[in-house]
C-alpha cells in the first residue's frame, strides 16, 4: 500500500513508521547486506518529514510527482547514504515508486543501489551519497539556488554523527550561515555509534551543538524516536528559519530503534539479520500497511 498526499496527524505517523521498520529489516535480510541500525534509528524523522513536515509536489489526485529540479517544493538530502533502506521505504510508501521494488534493494539491475544514486533514475533521489561528508554542501547549493530563484521552499539534510568527523562538513558548516541560507535545516543523527565503536571513542566530536552554534547556526535538540517531539521540533525549526540563520537539529536516536536486540550496540550498523533474527524482529513490528 502506498499513501497519497495527505499531511498526516502526528498520531497517524506511528503506523507508517512501523511498516517502514518492517520494510527495512526485510530489505536487508533479503539481500543479506545493508545498514539496518541507522535506518531504524532515523525512521521516525524520515516519516515525519515525508508524511507531515515537507511540502512536496503533487498532481491533482494528490500523488507525489518527482522532477529533478525540485523547484517549488521542499527538498531532502540524505548525506549518510548508507541508511538508504529507510529512505527507499519512505519514498516508496509515499508513492515515488512501486513498493514492490523494495524487493530489488542492492540486487543486480536494481534502481535501489546500495547507496542512493541518480544513474538509475530512481524517483526521489537527486544526488548520489555514500562517500560521507558531501550532502551538506549539496544541500547548501540547493538552498542557495532556491534563494537565487526566489523559491520560498526549504532544504533538509540528514547527516550521521560519525560523519561529523569529515572535514568537508565543517567547510559547509561555515559556508551556510555565512551565506545566510536560513532556508536550510540540517539534522544530525546523534546515535553515538559508528562502525568501529562508540563515536566518542573512535574520534570524539565533543559538543556538536556548541560547535554549530559557534559557526552561526541556530541549534535545536530533539529525541528522534519520539514522534510528538520530532513533529514539534521540526515545526520549531521551520519557524526559526527565515531569520538569517540556518537551523541544525541535534537528533538523539537509538540505533536499531524498534527491534530490541538491535538496540544499544553498534553491531547492527552494517549487518543483516538471519532468518531467525528476521522472525524475531518482525514479531516486534506491526504490519500496518501490508508488506511489499
Amino acid at each position: 500500500m502506498i499513501l497519497k498526499n495527505k499531511r498526516m496527524e502526528t498520531s497517524e505517523l506511528a503506523k507508517v513508521a512501523s511498516q517502514v521498520r518492517r520494510d527495512i529489516v526485510r530489505m536487508v535480510h533479503g539481500v543479506a547486506s545493508g545498514h539496518p541500525g541507522g535506518s531504524l534509528g532515523c525512521t521516525d524523522v524520515l516519516v515525519s518529514l515525508y508524511f507531515q513536515a515537507m511540502n512536496l509536489k503533487t498532481d491533482d489526485q494528490g500523488s507525489v510527482v518527482f522532477d529533478m529540479s525540485g523547484s517549488g517544493e521542499d527538498l531532502f538530502f540524505l548525506s549518510n547514504g548508507h541508511i538508504s533502506p529507510v529512505l527507499y521505504s519512505v519514498l516508496a510508501r509515499r508513492g515515488y515508486f512501486p513498493v514492490s521494488e523494495l524487493a530489488t534493494f542492492r540486487k543486480l539491475n536494481s534502481r535501489l543501489q546500495g547507496h542512493p544514486a541518480t544513474a538509475e533514475h530512481l524517483p526521489g533521489i537527486r544526488i548520489a551519497s555514500g562517500s560521507l561528508g558531501q550532502g551538506l554542501s549539496v544541500a547548501a547549493g540547493a538552498a542557495y539556488g532556491k534563494k537565487i530563484r526566489n523559491d520560498p521552499h526549504r532544504v533538509y539534510c540528514l547527516m550521521g554523527d560519525g560523519e561529523q568527523q569529515e572535514g568537508q562538513i565543517w567547510e559547509a558548516a561555515a559556508f551556510i550561515p555565512h551565506r545566510k541560507l536560513d532556508n536550510l535545516i540540517a539534522i544530525i543523527d546523534f546515535n553515538g555509534q559508528q562502525i568501529d565503536g562508540p563515536t566518542d571513542v573512535v574520534l570524539n566530536n565533543r559538543d556538536l551543538g556548541a560547535k554549530y552554534e559557534a559557526f552561526g547556526w541556530t541549534v535545536l535538540h530533539m529525541d528522534g524516536n519520539n514522534l510528538e517531539e520530532v513533529a514539534s521540533t521540526l515545526k520549531a525549526a521551520q519557524e526559526a528559519g527565515g531569520q538569517g540563520a540556518p537551523v541544525c537539529i541535534i537528533m538523539k536516536t537509538e540505533m536499531g530503534q524498534g527491534v530490541d536486540f538491535m538496540m544499544h550496540t553498534h553491531k547492527w550498523h552494517g549487518t543483516a539479520p538471519n532468518n531467525e533474527q528476521l522472525t524475531a524482529a518482525l514479531a516486534q513490528l506491526e504490519e500496518t500497511l501490508s508488506d511489499y
Partner: peptide, 23 residues
C-alpha cells in the same frame, strides 16, 4: 557570484546542488 573561500570540497558540492535549480 558565490565566494566559497578556501574550501574547494564544499564548493564542488554547492555547485552540484545549484544545478537542481536549473542554474
Amino acid at each position: 557570484f558565490i565566494q566559497c573561500g578556501i574550501a574547494e570540497a564544499n564548493m564542488i558540492g554547492v555547485a552540484a546542488g545549484l544545478t537542481l535549480n536549473g542554474l
